[in-house]
Nucleic acid binder design. Sequence first.
RNA 1: GGAGGGAUCGCAUAGUGGACUAGUGCGCAGUCCUGGAAAGACUGUAUAGGAGUGAUCCUAUCGGGGGUUCGAAUCCCCCUCCCUCCGCCA
Length: 431
Amino acid sequence: MIDIKLLKEKPELVKKAIQEKKVADKVNFEELVILDNKYSELLQKVESHRALRNQLSSDISKVPAENREKLITEAGRVKAELKELEESLTSVEIQRDNLLKKVPNIIHESVPSGKDETENVVIKKWGSPKKFDFTAKDHIELGKLLGLIDTEKSSEISGTRFTYLFGDAVLLQFGLIQFVFESLMDPKLVEKLAKEVGNPNFTPFVPVIPPVFMRSEIMDKMDRLEPQDDRYVFAEDSLVLVGSAEHTMGPLHMGEILDDSQLPKRYIGYSTAFRREAGSYGKDTRGILRVHQFDKLELECFTTPETGLVEQDLLVAFQQYFVQQLEIPHQIVAICTGDMGKPDYRQIDIECFMPGQDKYRETHTSDYMTDYQARRLNIRYKKGGYVHMNDATAFAIGRILIAILENYQRADGSIEVPKILRKYVGKDIIR
RNA sequence: GGAGGGAUCGCAUAGUGGACUAGUGCGCAGUCCUGGAAAGACUGUAUAGGAGUGAUCCUAUCGGGGGUUCGAAUCCCCCUCCCUCCGCCA
């Protein structure tokens, strides 16, 4: 949720966010302002009535018992009036907050304006698409050939958009996890990358395995519950399956006041992510690019407002480091206003080249959300105000496996193991 | 799943209807003392919203929500979480 003060202080930024971000239910800015003014008026009335009631109650306690009757009658009248006023206040407040929750976060000035993903801007390319002297296969064919991926069996057992991984694919997954954890916990590497992007904090990341079930109302505070169609909901238990480790790591400090010396707090979480993929029927139906269940390494950081933006720069630097270490050609994309998430202030994606599709496809995203989530989660820090939050993908295992298989394939269908992962997989070639 | 106990200011604790304007200790900040420090003394130390140039004042917040009352940290109801024990369990 945005800071309500922004309505008055930076109305043009709020209007711009409402206009340019693609959200299902656009808020009428003027209506919101009218409701907020009405709320302030009522609040003043309620407060002066409360002051009067408090004064009368205090008087009652001070006068002798026989003189109390008249004051109590008077206080009873004030109480009745107050009740009515409070009821209208509550109703206006609910209306106002329902609208306010629908207002997307404001947008950083560097974000390109655009209507949808076609207007995202490539800000950097690394490597160039590999030229094969044979016809490149896609991950489905390669996975089947090498016995690594079986989506046919999983369809029988679990339905479409699920998969079995076997053998060396599993070893690749555990290698990736180990590689990411080791990198993010290495103080020297954190310091090096932080310095490169001008981030003054060298705190290493803490590994986390978070729960995959959570209360739906907490997910709502993260502004990740909607559209609820995309969530697996367990109504009987009032629980929801997470769509990302972000969902359970973001609320880690809910309701806390963090000491400034504890910031930044940096976490690298590993968990399974669950997505119903409602509304993407017919899109990417083959293979493991878009599945209901996948494992993901996710970064989550809590900082002061001053260092929020350079924190995202650090996360993006780590993402680049990871794909560069894998030596996979990729591009960094500044997501435009019409394609960015509702809570985002700035969103940057990484797209890896996938030779099987001959396209760059999204493998990483990073979201800087300022205090948008922290406000409803009530995560503050001592010097005052809400912390700023960042989340970012370290690796979405399924998608990076696709990139590895397709980029490292050889004419005979075998796969060269990326150098950085060889010590974990225990071999140079998967055949 | 069952039985009992608890949640109070940054932390720890006191507080069974009006003197709570939430006490005390610790921590933190400032001043004094000191050659300097420790110890000690004194003072101050929550957040949010609102009014005022300002000192200051008003309102809300004692896990969350609702209720009783002129008045609730305190009484009643519901919920959440934590602790102890029993049951089940990898």
